[in-house]
Write a protein that binds this DNA or RNA. Sequence first.
DNA 1: GGCGAATATTTGATATATCAAAATTTTATT
DNA 2: AATAAAATTTTGATATATCAAATATTCGCC
Lengths: 150, 150
Amino acid sequence: MSNKTAVQSRLSDVIFYSIDKAIRSYRQYAQKQIRENGFDITIDQWLVLQALVENPGIKQQDLAEMVFKDNASVTRIIDLLVTNGFLERTVHATDRRKTNLTITNKAVNMLESMKPVIAANRRIALKEVSAADIQTVKRVLEQIAENCKR
Amino acid sequence: MSNKTAVQSRLSDVIFYSIDKAIRSYRQYAQKQIRENGFDITIDQWLVLQALVENPGIKQQDLAEMVFKDNASVTRIIDLLVTNGFLERTVHATDRRKTNLTITNKAVNMLESMKPVIAANRRIALKEVSAADIQTVKRVLEQIAENCKR
DNA sequence: GGCGAATATTTGATATATCAAAATTTTATT
DNA sequence: AATAAAATTTTGATATATCAAATATTCGCC
């Protein structure tokens, strides 16, 4: 009885299931640590802020691509960041369709004091994982993302 | 100039960034294929249905854990599955706190005809990825999930 | 047998995801 | 210069994520 097509694959055997589980576990853990250390910000808001720090002057569309979100989500996350005093939004001088996004001092300070927490989160999540394995995982996941582009 | 703590890590260098990117890319791709093949269901709804098929009689709490969602999300996904005629919800005979979740024929048939699409999605997403690499990725991601349990 | 603790699910409030459509502004073409 | 096409962001509608609180039921214990 060797029937290739009849092989039953259970959810838990599928690599995408592992990927989903890992990222959700990490996000839950990281978010909890952030809150417990007194920072009132979501992971996604932090991600957008951090991307802006690393790429000042970027337009929202490119920002969205960078954090794997669509424009609508980014608009709304930015709304909240502005509401909470982490960002300032002004119209672009030469292209009025765009917006200038400026990080406030409040945000800069917060990001700075969050660094140890972020570092600890990553360190704990990667306990017992070798550098070689990390490289392998990154390479494979990049390949998967590439394969799904079309 | 060798200062360990001063190393700047960019978002794109972080493994969690790769994990996020991979799962989002796959989900987008898979969802698009599902729609384009005429199936009117979300990935998450499919996931819940599939978990129910593999674990008949499971209670919602365990179901939630199995698909890495919280109880509230599962309740609402089930609401939609019932509304759309894929599930039937009845009260448990001996414990009226619980609900019996029964998959309708409509759902069974749909899951069956979705199989080729799901298989193709996985095959395409994993193109050029070796079996050994898949095993490594799964092992590492399980470790990460384990590390984040507390 | 009654009462408090524990269990299972739902609901409310807010944040994010996704798609399509709308609104605004710029660019290209003639 | 007028107009259509393209680019950028926002809005609307619906689905999912998360946490806390509410509901309903069962269990443990006296």
